[in-house]
Computed example of a mutant assay.
Amino acid sequence: MKKKTYDEVMKESPVTYEIYANMIDDGNRYEISDGVLELMSPSPTFTHQSLSQELLFILNTSCRNEYIMISSPIDVILSDTEVRQPDLVMIHRSRISIISNRGINGAPDLVVEITSEHSRRRDKVKKRIIYANYKVPEYWIVDLTNFTLEQYVLDGDRYDLVEVYAGEETIHSKTVPCASFSMNEIVRSLPVPPEMLE
């Protein structure tokens, strides 16, 4: 298949994973939402990236024997016309068959989005509906404005907001029982305090 530019792909309807995977790399990151190519927000901030690394580190420390964890960019191919790039995904080792070189083929056990002012509505509304539709068992939204973690657990075909964690409250998950940490623990581990980066 001939590689296409962003403008050429935008004329396709619907955009499929194959079309997306054969785009000319223009240095931007994209997702496919219901067959429509979407340009992702501006590059993540330093705090976003360092928090993502610290979260990955702490989860790896306690969960690596049971789960495979990977941070963005990685394609989570929920269907041929729904491809997402969450900030972090966890897949139980019993489900290793959904992992391929091209990405994650199907719903991970846990998806984490680290939200900012640019992505808040998309993460809290649109992606919450999408991840529920594709049966992702648990969804965490980490909010950088107040360093909270919203924990959503799948109940049928929709998410229930189970808990909002902040400060020293220990985060627990029935989906990922090996996870146990607080938001303050993560924030204290950041290489540069967020208030120094205003």
Rank of each mutant, 00 (worst) to 15 (best):
N184M: 03
T175V: 15
P193L: 04
Y139R: 14
V153Q: 08
C178A: 06
E150I: 02
C178S: 06
A179G: 07
H172D: 08
P137V: 10
I171D: 09
V187N: 04
E150F: 03
D155Y: 11
I141Q: 09
D155P: 00
Y139P: 08
D155M: 05
V153T: 15
L149E: 01
D157Q: 15
V192D: 04
R158E: 12
E150G: 01
E185Q: 13
V176H: 09
A179D: 10
F147P: 10
S180D: 10
I186R: 00
G167K: 12
N184G: 02
T175Y: 02
E138K: 08
P137R: 13
F181P: 11
S182P: 10
I141K: 09
T175I: 15
W140R: 05
L161S: 14
P193E: 08
L154C: 00
D155F: 12
L144N: 13
V176N: 03
M183W: 00
E168L: 06
S173I: 06
D143G: 11
K174I: 11
T148N: 13
V164S: 14
V176L: 08
V176D: 01
L149I: 14
L154P: 02
L149K: 03
R188A: 09
P194T: 10
P193R: 06
V176T: 10
Q151A: 12
S189Q: 11
E169W: 00
P177H: 07
T145H: 06
T175L: 04
I171W: 01
S182R: 02
D143P: 00
E185H: 14
N146K: 10
D160S: 13
Y165G: 04
D143L: 09
D160K: 13
Y152C: 11
T170H: 06
S189M: 13
T170A: 05
F181A: 02
L154Y: 11
E163I: 07
